[in-house]
């Protein structure tokens, strides 16, 4: 193996790591915006807008559990007010947005951030208990 080849591989790997960090940072704002829009939609009684922000499987699960259309069922959930400082963590296709005491999990679907977990209560040492979530 030549040293040129080794150097090229090393540069490629380093560039990949930087790209990874850069891509994650650029997704913070869209993920935060999607979470805020969901909580605002529920807060203002706009069920259609709220359901459009849920991942398809989360929407189906909510309808099955409640026995009602998503637009009505989602307004019965206590998703929180979303007030307080926002803290966003993005890792590839997944994101967690904390808005004050409220935690929302999102995943990227065809370039859009959709909610896969909301109305979440932390459980020590275990996954969050989310009323709205994919199965």
């Amino acid at each position: 193996m030549t040293r040129t080849t080794v150097g090229a591989r090393l540069a490629l790997t380093g560039a990949g790591a930087l790209l990874l960090a850069a891509c994650a940072g650029s997704q913070d704002a869209p993920a935060r915006s999607a979470a805020q829009q969901l909580l605002r939609a529920v807060d203002t009684g706009d069920g259609s807008a709220a359901c459009a922000l849920l991942a398809p499987a989360a929407r189906d699960e909510l309808e099955q559990q409640s026995g009602r259309p998503c637009e009505r069922a989602v307004l019965q959930e206590d998703l929180g007010s979303g007030s307080g400082a926002a803290h966003v963590e993005v890792y590839d296709s997944m994101a967690q947005v904390r808005l004050g005491a409220d935690t929302v999990f999102l995943s990227r679907f065809d370039g859009r951030w959709l909610v896969v977990g909301a109305a979440c209560t932390p459980v020590a040492g275990r996954p969050y208990d989310c009323s709205v979530a994919v199965p």
């Binding site: 990874l20 994650a24 963590e89 890792y91 590839d92 296709s93 997944m94 994101a95 967690q96 999990f105 995943s107 896969v116 977990g117 979440c120 932390p122 275990r126 996954p127 969050y128 989310c130 979530a133």
Partner: peptide, 15 residues
């Protein structure tokens, strides 16, 4: 770390 945290978020866990 990023891949593991992506998996944790899928499982509704903190990163």
């Amino acid at each position: 770390w990023a891949a593991f945290n992506e998996q944790r978020l899928q499982q509704l866990q903190d990163p």
